[in-house]
């Protein structure tokens, strides 16, 4: 199963929310749509789901042109950011409503629901109302509902953003096992670069309604196509060095090391991160962040250096990468 999007665009009140969006997602692949708020991530998802109509371009699911089909006929499974569980229905009714509407026999409904409830470890909660569930349980119900859809594509809209940080990390492997390891393509919208790197096979970075770059997490990290991507991927954030000859150089904090032959700088501040520590340095070319092992303790005055192969170069005018 595949998802192909070609030159998709959405225009509201003469303003393009997204434009010329193209990508392909293969079967079993997870593509993350990553970007800051307001960049058009959710619009992209809604157009593919059929909740809004695209003004431009084509959408193919399994090779079938679905651009003008209604959400039902597109056979997509979707998890909403708010989970959108029906508040007046208990867990099993939330799951059975769609099956009932789609004409699944009562016997099959029970079978499917029992099986998905046990996969999701929700057996004991089947007659609870959504308001009686914890955030993690609600997310699992929402996932279960999407999985029961027998969808050709799964669309996840910030599925983790309503959970606290700790729960998010423990749920990642679970989500991967349950949804991402299936044969259907998955589109995963998030604003959290760490989550995108952890979950997705490839990431599309969206900026102001356009795709800035698309690639594997490794490619984006190693070869960011623009200043925007370089800043967005990798934490702590990359160091931008001053412009010279129309070129901006950038170096990641983890690629800087202490070198007595290097150039001098002053230690301003440090942050303890656990396995390592982050130093804020003051140099002749402006402030620089550097990562060191946590055992290192530094004097006030140090010299640093980096390897030329780790430096990224960008055109100062276009913001694009220089080869």
């Amino acid at each position: 199963m595949t998802l192909n999007v070609i030159n998709m665009g959405k225009c509201i009140n003469k303003k393009w929310i997204i434009r010329d969006i193209s990508f392909d997602v293969k079967d079993g692949e997870c593509l993350a749509i990553l970007g800051p708020s307001g960049c058009g991530k959710s619009t992209t998802l809604r157009l593919i789901a059929g909740l809004d109509k695209a003004n431009q371009g084509k959408i193919y699911i399994n090779g079938l042109d679905v651009t003008n089909l209604s959400p039902v006929d597109r056979q997509v499974g979707m998890v909403f950011q708010s989970y959108a569980l029906f508040p007046h229905l208990d867990v099993s009714s939330n799951l059975s409503l769609g099956l009932k509407i789609r004409g699944v026999s009562l016997e099959d409904q029970t079978k499917k629901i029992t099986s998905i409830l046990s996969i999701m470890q929700l057996d004991h909660l089947s007659d609870r109302l959504p308001s009686e569930l914890s955030g993690g349980q609600r997310q699992r119900v929402a996932l279960a509902r999407a999985l029961l859809r027998d969808a050709h594509v799964y669309l996840l809209d910030e599925p983790m953003s309503n959970l606290d940080a700790q729960l998010r990390e423990t749920l990642r492997p679970e989500l991967r096992k349950l949804v991402l390891n299936r044969e259907q393509p998955v589109l995963y919208v998030t604003h959290d670069q760490q989550e995108a790197m952890a979950m997705a096979d490839r990431i599309a970075i969206l900026k102001d309604g356009y795709i800035e770059q698309i690639g594997t997490p490794e490619e984006l990290y190693k070869k960011p196509g623009s200043i925007f991507v370089a800043n967005f991927i990798g934490r702590p954030q990359i160091n931008m060095l001053p412009i010279s000859n129309g070129v901006i150089k950038a170096i990641r904090p983890e690629h800087i090391y202490i070198d007595n032959q290097g150039f001098p700088c002053k230690l301003v501040h440090k942050e303890w991160l656990g396995i390592n520590q982050l130093f804020f340095l003051d140099t002749a070319i402006g402030p620089i962040r550097m990562i060191c092992e946590s055992s290192v303790s530094l004097p006030q005055e140090i010299n640093i250096s980096w390897d030329e192969k780790n430096v990224h170069e960008f055109n100062a005018n276009s913001g694009k990468r220089c080869i």
Partner: peptide
């Protein structure tokens, strides 16, 4: 969201 979820459900 609720109505949209219902639309997706068919």
């Amino acid at each position: 969201d609720l109505e949209e979820a219902a639309r997706i459900e068919g």
